Simulated scan of single mutants.
Amino acid sequence: MQDTSLKSPGALVEAGVAEVGRSTPPSGARRWLARHLPKLVLAPSTFVVLIAVYVFIAWTAWISLSSSKVVPIYDFVGLEQYVRLWATERWHTAVVNLFVFSSLFLIGAVLIGLLLAILLDQRVRAEGALRAIYLYPMALSFIVTGTAWKWILNPGLGIQKVVNDLGWDSFVFNWIVDPHYAIYTVVIAGIWQSSGFAMAVFLAGLRGIDNSIIKAAQIEGASLPQIYWRIIVPMLRPAFLSVVVLLSHIAIKSFDLVLALTNAGPGGSTELPSTFMFAASFRRNQLGVGAASAMMMLMTVAAIIVPYLYSELRGRRDEH
Protein backbone atom coordinates (compact mmCIF):
# COMPACT_ATOMS: atom_id res chain seq x y z
CA MET A 1 0.00 0.00 0.00
CA GLN A 2 1.39 3.39 -0.97
CA ASP A 3 2.27 5.70 1.91
CA THR A 4 0.60 9.12 1.56
CA SER A 5 1.80 10.53 4.85
CA LEU A 6 4.92 12.09 3.24
CA LYS A 7 3.00 13.79 0.40
CA SER A 8 2.28 17.51 0.45
CA PRO A 9 -1.32 18.74 0.97
CA GLY A 10 -1.52 19.94 -2.62
CA ALA A 11 -0.54 16.50 -3.91
CA LEU A 12 -3.18 14.89 -1.72
CA VAL A 13 -5.91 17.20 -3.07
CA GLU A 14 -4.93 16.48 -6.67
CA ALA A 15 -4.97 12.75 -5.96
CA GLY A 16 -8.47 13.04 -4.41
CA VAL A 17 -9.82 14.99 -7.37
CA ALA A 18 -8.39 12.41 -9.75
CA GLU A 19 -10.03 9.61 -7.74
CA VAL A 20 -13.45 11.37 -7.80
CA GLY A 21 -13.11 11.98 -11.53
CA ARG A 22 -12.53 8.27 -12.10
CA SER A 23 -15.67 7.38 -10.04
CA THR A 24 -18.13 9.80 -11.79
CA PRO A 25 -19.74 8.96 -15.14
CA PRO A 26 -18.57 10.71 -18.27
CA SER A 27 -20.01 14.17 -18.92
CA GLY A 28 -21.64 12.96 -22.13
CA ALA A 29 -23.66 10.32 -20.22
CA ARG A 30 -24.76 12.93 -17.68
CA ARG A 31 -25.95 15.25 -20.42
CA TRP A 32 -27.86 12.44 -22.14
CA LEU A 33 -29.53 11.46 -18.84
CA ALA A 34 -30.49 15.07 -18.05
CA ARG A 35 -31.95 15.49 -21.53
CA HIS A 36 -33.97 12.27 -21.62
CA LEU A 37 -34.90 11.78 -17.95
CA PRO A 38 -38.32 13.57 -18.28
CA LYS A 39 -39.20 11.38 -21.25
CA LEU A 40 -38.19 8.24 -19.36
CA VAL A 41 -40.31 9.25 -16.37
CA LEU A 42 -43.36 10.02 -18.53
CA ALA A 43 -42.99 6.98 -20.78
CA PRO A 44 -45.04 4.54 -18.61
CA SER A 45 -48.01 6.90 -18.22
CA THR A 46 -47.83 7.82 -21.92
CA PHE A 47 -47.93 4.14 -22.83
CA VAL A 48 -50.96 3.56 -20.58
CA VAL A 49 -52.78 6.53 -22.15
CA LEU A 50 -52.03 5.27 -25.65
CA ILE A 51 -53.44 1.84 -24.81
CA ALA A 52 -56.36 2.86 -22.58
CA VAL A 53 -57.54 5.79 -24.71
CA TYR A 54 -56.42 5.81 -28.32
CA VAL A 55 -56.27 2.06 -28.90
CA PHE A 56 -59.77 1.66 -27.49
CA ILE A 57 -61.02 4.59 -29.58
CA ALA A 58 -59.71 2.79 -32.66
CA TRP A 59 -61.28 -0.46 -31.45
CA THR A 60 -64.65 1.25 -30.91
CA ALA A 61 -64.48 2.79 -34.38
CA TRP A 62 -63.86 -0.65 -35.90
CA ILE A 63 -66.73 -2.22 -33.92
CA SER A 64 -69.04 0.54 -35.17
CA LEU A 65 -68.26 -0.58 -38.73
CA SER A 66 -68.90 -4.25 -38.01
CA SER A 67 -72.01 -6.37 -37.50
CA SER A 68 -71.32 -6.87 -33.77
CA LYS A 69 -74.30 -7.50 -31.51
CA VAL A 70 -73.82 -9.54 -28.33
CA VAL A 71 -70.06 -10.00 -28.79
CA PRO A 72 -67.53 -8.24 -31.05
CA ILE A 73 -67.39 -9.52 -34.61
CA TYR A 74 -64.44 -8.28 -36.64
CA ASP A 75 -66.06 -8.07 -40.04
CA PHE A 76 -66.86 -4.98 -42.09
CA VAL A 77 -70.37 -3.81 -42.97
CA GLY A 78 -69.65 -0.14 -43.66
CA LEU A 79 -72.06 2.41 -42.18
CA GLU A 80 -74.84 -0.07 -41.51
CA GLN A 81 -74.74 0.47 -37.73
CA TYR A 82 -74.91 4.24 -38.18
CA VAL A 83 -77.98 3.83 -40.40
CA ARG A 84 -79.60 1.67 -37.73
CA LEU A 85 -78.64 4.22 -35.08
CA TRP A 86 -80.29 7.15 -36.83
CA ALA A 87 -83.34 5.03 -37.60
CA THR A 88 -83.89 4.47 -33.86
CA GLU A 89 -86.49 6.80 -32.34
CA ARG A 90 -84.89 6.61 -28.91
CA TRP A 91 -81.64 8.00 -30.36
CA HIS A 92 -83.57 10.96 -31.80
CA THR A 93 -85.00 11.57 -28.30
CA ALA A 94 -81.48 11.42 -26.86
CA VAL A 95 -80.16 13.96 -29.38
CA VAL A 96 -83.04 16.38 -28.74
CA ASN A 97 -82.59 16.00 -24.97
CA LEU A 98 -78.85 16.64 -25.35
CA PHE A 99 -79.56 19.88 -27.20
CA VAL A 100 -82.08 21.02 -24.55
CA PHE A 101 -79.91 19.96 -21.62
CA SER A 102 -76.67 21.38 -23.03
CA SER A 103 -78.20 24.73 -23.95
CA LEU A 104 -79.96 25.35 -20.64
CA PHE A 105 -77.08 23.86 -18.63
CA LEU A 106 -74.49 26.10 -20.29
CA ILE A 107 -76.60 29.26 -20.09
CA GLY A 108 -77.59 28.68 -16.46
CA ALA A 109 -74.13 27.67 -15.21
CA VAL A 110 -72.38 30.53 -17.03
CA LEU A 111 -74.84 33.22 -15.88
CA ILE A 112 -74.96 32.06 -12.26
CA GLY A 113 -71.20 31.56 -12.16
CA LEU A 114 -70.61 35.03 -13.58
CA LEU A 115 -73.01 36.68 -11.10
CA LEU A 116 -71.41 34.87 -8.17
CA ALA A 117 -67.93 35.88 -9.37
CA ILE A 118 -68.97 39.54 -9.67
CA LEU A 119 -70.48 39.37 -6.18
CA LEU A 120 -67.28 37.97 -4.67
CA ASP A 121 -65.21 40.49 -6.62
CA GLN A 122 -66.73 43.24 -4.46
CA ARG A 123 -64.53 42.07 -1.57
CA VAL A 124 -67.52 41.08 0.56
CA ARG A 125 -67.14 39.80 4.09
CA ALA A 126 -66.50 36.09 4.58
CA GLU A 127 -65.43 35.80 0.95
CA GLY A 128 -63.40 32.69 1.69
CA ALA A 129 -66.36 30.93 3.30
CA LEU A 130 -68.72 31.90 0.47
CA ARG A 131 -66.23 30.73 -2.13
CA ALA A 132 -65.93 27.37 -0.37
CA ILE A 133 -69.73 27.03 -0.17
CA TYR A 134 -70.16 27.80 -3.88
CA LEU A 135 -67.38 25.39 -4.84
CA TYR A 136 -68.54 22.58 -2.56
CA PRO A 137 -71.01 20.99 -5.03
CA MET A 138 -68.19 20.58 -7.56
CA ALA A 139 -66.39 18.33 -5.07
CA LEU A 140 -69.30 15.87 -5.11
CA SER A 141 -69.64 13.13 -7.66
CA PHE A 142 -72.55 13.24 -10.09
CA ILE A 143 -73.91 10.07 -8.45
CA VAL A 144 -74.19 11.88 -5.11
CA THR A 145 -75.70 14.95 -6.77
CA GLY A 146 -78.25 12.89 -8.68
CA THR A 147 -79.25 10.91 -5.60
CA ALA A 148 -79.63 14.04 -3.46
CA TRP A 149 -81.74 15.84 -6.04
CA LYS A 150 -83.82 12.71 -6.59
CA TRP A 151 -84.87 12.95 -2.94
CA ILE A 152 -85.35 16.74 -3.10
CA LEU A 153 -87.57 16.57 -6.20
CA ASN A 154 -89.50 13.45 -5.21
CA PRO A 155 -93.16 14.52 -4.77
CA GLY A 156 -93.58 12.20 -1.80
CA LEU A 157 -90.38 13.22 0.01
CA GLY A 158 -89.04 16.58 -1.14
CA ILE A 159 -90.15 20.09 -1.97
CA GLN A 160 -93.77 19.27 -2.85
CA LYS A 161 -94.36 17.33 0.38
CA VAL A 162 -92.77 20.04 2.54
CA VAL A 163 -94.90 22.78 0.98
CA ASN A 164 -98.05 20.63 1.20
CA ASP A 165 -97.35 19.92 4.88
CA LEU A 166 -97.08 23.67 5.48
CA GLY A 167 -100.69 24.05 4.34
CA TRP A 168 -100.44 24.75 0.60
CA ASP A 169 -102.25 21.62 -0.54
CA SER A 170 -102.64 22.74 -4.18
CA PHE A 171 -98.88 23.15 -4.71
CA VAL A 172 -97.52 20.66 -7.24
CA PHE A 173 -93.88 20.20 -8.24
CA ASN A 174 -93.67 16.76 -9.80
CA TRP A 175 -91.34 17.43 -12.72
CA ILE A 176 -89.21 14.39 -11.97
CA VAL A 177 -92.13 12.03 -12.72
CA ASP A 178 -93.56 14.07 -15.61
CA PRO A 179 -92.15 12.98 -19.01
CA HIS A 180 -92.57 16.52 -20.38
CA TYR A 181 -90.53 18.21 -17.64
CA ALA A 182 -88.17 15.51 -16.33
CA ILE A 183 -85.25 16.69 -18.49
CA TYR A 184 -85.39 20.06 -16.72
CA THR A 185 -84.70 18.38 -13.38
CA VAL A 186 -81.42 17.14 -14.87
CA VAL A 187 -80.70 20.73 -15.90
CA ILE A 188 -81.34 21.98 -12.34
CA ALA A 189 -79.04 19.40 -10.78
CA GLY A 190 -76.31 20.01 -13.36
CA ILE A 191 -76.38 23.78 -12.89
CA TRP A 192 -76.28 23.39 -9.11
CA GLN A 193 -73.12 21.31 -9.33
CA SER A 194 -71.20 23.14 -12.08
CA SER A 195 -71.95 26.84 -11.49
CA GLY A 196 -69.30 26.93 -8.74
CA PHE A 197 -66.65 25.86 -11.23
CA ALA A 198 -67.71 28.64 -13.61
CA MET A 199 -67.59 31.07 -10.69
CA ALA A 200 -64.00 30.08 -9.87
CA VAL A 201 -62.83 30.58 -13.46
CA PHE A 202 -64.57 33.95 -13.81
CA LEU A 203 -63.31 35.13 -10.43
CA ALA A 204 -59.74 34.30 -11.44
CA GLY A 205 -60.26 36.32 -14.62
CA LEU A 206 -61.71 39.27 -12.68
CA ARG A 207 -58.83 39.29 -10.23
CA GLY A 208 -56.42 39.50 -13.16
CA ILE A 209 -57.92 42.78 -14.43
CA ASP A 210 -56.18 45.99 -13.39
CA ASN A 211 -58.26 48.04 -10.92
CA SER A 212 -57.10 51.23 -12.61
CA ILE A 213 -59.47 50.43 -15.50
CA ILE A 214 -62.44 50.45 -13.15
CA LYS A 215 -61.27 53.63 -11.42
CA ALA A 216 -60.79 55.41 -14.75
CA ALA A 217 -64.29 54.43 -15.87
CA GLN A 218 -65.75 55.65 -12.56
CA ILE A 219 -64.00 59.00 -13.01
CA GLU A 220 -65.69 59.25 -16.42
CA GLY A 221 -69.05 58.83 -14.70
CA ALA A 222 -69.84 55.21 -15.58
CA SER A 223 -71.87 53.24 -13.04
CA LEU A 224 -70.65 49.91 -11.69
CA PRO A 225 -73.16 47.83 -13.75
CA GLN A 226 -72.10 49.69 -16.90
CA ILE A 227 -68.41 49.10 -16.11
CA TYR A 228 -68.94 45.37 -15.76
CA TRP A 229 -71.27 45.02 -18.75
CA ARG A 230 -69.34 47.16 -21.24
CA ILE A 231 -65.72 46.86 -20.07
CA ILE A 232 -65.04 44.01 -17.65
CA VAL A 233 -67.20 41.22 -19.09
CA PRO A 234 -65.84 41.63 -22.67
CA MET A 235 -62.34 41.32 -21.21
CA LEU A 236 -63.28 37.89 -19.83
CA ARG A 237 -63.49 36.31 -23.29
CA PRO A 238 -60.75 33.70 -22.58
CA ALA A 239 -62.52 32.71 -19.36
CA PHE A 240 -65.85 32.43 -21.18
CA LEU A 241 -64.26 30.24 -23.84
CA SER A 242 -62.67 27.92 -21.28
CA VAL A 243 -65.89 27.57 -19.27
CA VAL A 244 -68.04 26.88 -22.34
CA VAL A 245 -65.64 24.26 -23.71
CA LEU A 246 -65.25 22.40 -20.42
CA LEU A 247 -68.95 22.51 -19.52
CA SER A 248 -69.90 21.40 -23.05
CA HIS A 249 -67.66 18.39 -22.59
CA ILE A 250 -69.36 17.63 -19.25
CA ALA A 251 -72.82 17.99 -20.82
CA ILE A 252 -72.10 15.69 -23.75
CA LYS A 253 -70.75 12.85 -21.63
CA SER A 254 -73.25 13.21 -18.75
CA PHE A 255 -74.15 9.71 -17.68
CA ASP A 256 -73.99 9.14 -13.93
CA LEU A 257 -76.09 12.23 -13.14
CA VAL A 258 -78.96 11.01 -15.35
CA LEU A 259 -78.57 7.44 -14.15
CA ALA A 260 -78.82 8.42 -10.47
CA LEU A 261 -81.51 11.08 -10.90
CA THR A 262 -83.99 9.60 -13.39
CA ASN A 263 -82.41 6.42 -14.81
CA ALA A 264 -83.24 7.89 -18.26
CA GLY A 265 -86.94 7.85 -17.38
CA PRO A 266 -89.80 8.19 -17.05
CA GLY A 267 -90.37 6.30 -20.27
CA GLY A 268 -87.03 7.28 -21.77
CA SER A 269 -87.91 10.98 -21.59
CA THR A 270 -84.48 11.89 -20.15
CA GLU A 271 -82.44 9.66 -22.43
CA LEU A 272 -79.08 11.17 -23.42
CA PRO A 273 -76.52 9.81 -25.91
CA SER A 274 -74.38 8.48 -23.04
CA THR A 275 -77.24 6.53 -21.46
CA PHE A 276 -78.36 5.34 -24.91
CA MET A 277 -74.85 4.03 -25.60
CA PHE A 278 -74.75 2.14 -22.29
CA ALA A 279 -78.22 0.64 -22.76
CA ALA A 280 -77.59 -0.37 -26.38
CA SER A 281 -74.23 -1.98 -25.62
CA PHE A 282 -74.98 -3.81 -22.36
CA ARG A 283 -78.75 -4.14 -22.06
CA ARG A 284 -80.10 -4.53 -25.59
CA ASN A 285 -77.20 -6.57 -27.02
CA GLN A 286 -76.54 -4.05 -29.80
CA LEU A 287 -72.81 -3.58 -29.42
CA GLY A 288 -72.36 -2.18 -32.92
CA VAL A 289 -75.10 0.43 -32.46
CA GLY A 290 -73.63 1.36 -29.08
CA ALA A 291 -70.20 1.80 -30.64
CA ALA A 292 -71.70 3.96 -33.38
CA SER A 293 -73.37 6.19 -30.79
CA ALA A 294 -70.05 6.46 -28.92
CA MET A 295 -68.31 7.60 -32.10
CA MET A 296 -71.03 10.20 -32.68
CA MET A 297 -70.38 11.53 -29.17
CA LEU A 298 -66.64 11.58 -29.85
CA MET A 299 -67.15 13.55 -33.05
CA THR A 300 -69.34 16.04 -31.18
CA VAL A 301 -66.70 16.56 -28.50
CA ALA A 302 -64.00 16.88 -31.17
CA ALA A 303 -66.07 19.51 -32.98
CA ILE A 304 -65.91 21.60 -29.80
CA ILE A 305 -62.38 20.86 -28.57
CA VAL A 306 -60.44 21.03 -31.86
CA PRO A 307 -61.40 24.65 -32.76
CA TYR A 308 -60.64 25.68 -29.18
CA LEU A 309 -57.19 24.07 -29.24
CA TYR A 310 -56.51 25.56 -32.66
CA SER A 311 -57.37 29.07 -31.48
CA GLU A 312 -55.22 28.64 -28.36
CA LEU A 313 -52.20 27.37 -30.29
CA ARG A 314 -52.61 30.05 -32.94
CA GLY A 315 -52.80 32.74 -30.26
CA ARG A 316 -49.59 31.53 -28.61
CA ARG A 317 -47.87 31.35 -31.98
CA ASP A 318 -48.87 34.94 -32.73
CA GLU A 319 -47.54 36.07 -29.34
CA HIS A 320 -44.13 34.59 -30.15
Rank of each mutant, 00 (worst) to 15 (best):
V124R: 05
V124S: 08
R125N: 08
R131G: 11
A132N: 12
L135F: 02
L135M: 13
P137A: 05
P137R: 02
S141N: 11
F142Q: 12
I143T: 15
I143S: 14
I143W: 09
T145S: 08
G146C: 08
G146I: 09
T147L: 15
A148Q: 13
W151P: 00
I152D: 06
N154L: 07
G156R: 12
L157G: 03
I159A: 09
V162M: 10
V163N: 04
V163G: 03
V163P: 01
V163S: 06
L166E: 03
W168Q: 11
W168I: 14
D169N: 13
D169F: 09
D169M: 11
S170E: 14
V172T: 14
F173W: 07
W175I: 08
W175Y: 13
D178L: 01
D178A: 03
Y181H: 09
Y184W: 15
T185F: 00
T185A: 07
V187D: 02
I188Y: 13
I188C: 14
I191Q: 07
W192I: 09
S195W: 00
F197G: 03
A198G: 06
A198Q: 01
F202A: 05
L203Y: 12
L206D: 10
L206G: 10
G208D: 11
I209M: 12
I213G: 02
I214A: 12
K215V: 03
A216S: 15
A216F: 09
A216K: 09
Q218Y: 07
G221P: 01
A222Q: 12
S223G: 14
L224G: 00
P225T: 09
Q226A: 14
Q226K: 14
I227T: 08
I227F: 02
R230K: 14
R230T: 12
M235W: 00
